[in-house]
Nucleic acid binder design. Structure first.
Lengths: 199, 199
DNA sequence: GGGAATCTTGCGCACCAGGCAAGTTTGCTC
DNA sequence: GAGCAAACTTGCCTGGTGCGCAAGATTCCC
């Protein structure tokens, strides 16, 4: 994923990851709001000021994993054939991602991420993370649609799809025994729009 | 809506509204992040500390109007017959609300609200406002559903429906000439799930 | 009228975002 | 490999913020 792309870039990625993981660990241990930015920075061997160079808030650091995963989802969607009905393409991308999470090294992330569950105050920040991707997703989808309501359709599709993925992820987090791919499949089944591929 | 319910309650409601409107006005005039909590409190003739008694952040004050309307949506849903298919009930409630916004005194709110548009940094806070309602909506919907996946279905429905309403509202804000009810109708048409009323 | 409940306010404190200006590290070229 | 430019890190500092606390004001209700 992050090929050898220059020392500088790799170091930055490492720092970002370290901050994210420190945030996740400390939040799990002490509760998200008992953790200060300074503590996170310390745990990642970096100054408080540097933390601000990477994330604009504690919460952004916490949800960096989600953000990364959503970016990956965009990539996967991009790889889907352009003539596939949009919802089908989205579903395939989501299932692909879920499979990666279940098998790949992202499993570790999932487990750490689980420990954040049960802090309802963070839900709004999760929603914010998803909202940040929504515009990009809508843009990508607009390219796959034709017809008069193209923009509106793209936005609705992006919003409902991401909402579904969010719920499915939540579900997967709450039920550690269920593979993520099953959670995604179940949620998508309930959300499939009546008309996909129409004009 | 707010019957004579005791002086104390009415005063509190008035203060909350005053803070909300002051926030909206100042944010429109100077840009959301150039406004301080203190300025909002001053404009509403209240101390900075009192602001915090009503809202936990500037953004919460800004989106109080959205929150109020979403609460109203819950009320309207509650008034729908319990045996109606869920998506149909949701749609009717949303259309009812849109009609109120187009005709009633909420029009003024819409116009003030429009001036907030074009500050993308606020989108995440809007999403947060919707997320806060989502759990309640899912609870209400769960009562209307039966079957094994009841909870999951309710969550997916709540999330996708609110996402749709959010997009429609956004659309209605961006196109002042289109009545809100048309925006809602159009968005809902695209989002209707394939199976409504199933088990 | 008067006591209980609730709300407002000022004060104080820990925390936070982000501008600025050294100092340090990495990338690139010869 | 020397050396310069670009990029990154850090400390310092300032204007803001969220919230606990306790004193004073207001409303409620008998």
């Amino acid at each position: 994923m992050d090929e050898a792309a220059g020392l500088r870039e790799r170091k930055k990625a490492a720092t970002r990851l370290a901050l994210h993981e420190a945030a996740l660990r400390l939040a799990a241990e002490q509760g998200p709001d008992r953790v200060t930015v300074e503590a996170i920075a310390d745990a990642a061997n970096v100054s408080r000021r540097t933390f601000s160079n990477y994330f604009s808030s504690k919460e952004e650091a916490l949800f960096y994993g989600d953000t990364t995963r959503l970016r990956r989802l965009l990539e996967l969607l991009h790889a889907e054939p352009a003539d596939e009905p949009p919802w089908a393409a989205l579903s395939r991308a989501a299932l692909h991602l879920a499979a990666e999470v279940d098998d790949g090294p992202a499993r570790a992330w999932l487990n750490r991420r689980r420990r954040l569950h049960g802090h309802p105050g963070l839900l709004s920040h999760q929603a914010a993370a998803y909202a940040a991707i929504e515009r990009e997703l809508a843009g990508e989808l607009a390219r796959r649609l034709t017809g008069p309501d193209q923009t509106l359709r793209a936005r609705v599709l992006a919003a409902t799809f991401l909402a579904t993925v969010r719920v499915a992820t939540q579900q997967g987090i709450e039920h550690p025994d269920t593979p993520m791919i099953d959670a995604i499949r179940a949620a998508l089944a309930h959300a499939a729009p009546a008309s996909d591929g129409g004009s």
